[in-house]
Amino acid sequence: MATHSLTTPLTDADIEKLRAGDVVRLSGVIYSGRDAAHKKLVELLDAGKPLPFDPRGAVIYYVGPSPAPAGRPIGSAGPTTSYRMDAYAPRLIALGLKASIGKGKRNDEVKKAMREHKAVYFGATGGAGALLSMRITASRVIAFEELGPEAVREMTVRDFPLLVINDAFGGELYATPNLPD
């Protein structure tokens, strides 16, 4: 398993280097978005309106952070479960989104979109929200402020610790359960 240091925006060349199981330290600007924000992003696309950020080369982090206390850019900020964004993700991947960050399984449509458009799915450690918060150096809401914790934020990360769960070649890291027949 290789270790890569990557900086956003990500390119096809960045994605082609990655294999399921690789460790990635991600730096640069990423965007937060979870359930309600994804619904609104797709509504903007349906209405022919621009997204609040350029999806090309972008990374979306499925996170709804806790409020920032004084002196911190953000509160606790670990990943939420990704399958709830599966209904929306292929649309964004087709527009050039290069990676999403979350936890848990993706469906076949998302995996297919990642293969077709060269994108990956990163896992961050669920329930390590305080630890992950330390790697976020700046955060500001750029859209849908009314959604509170679900608003879209532009966040700057430094060496954000990730694992490649699904690569762009059909590889997957998650273990298959040993179910008795």
Binding site: V63, P69, G75, S76, G78, G127, G129, A130, P149
Partner: peptide, 12 residues
């Protein structure tokens, strides 16, 4: 870290 900083253990 959560105990020291009083950031929640998990954002949820």
């Amino acid at each position: 870290l959560a105990f020291k900083t009083k950031l929640p253990l998990c954002q949820d």
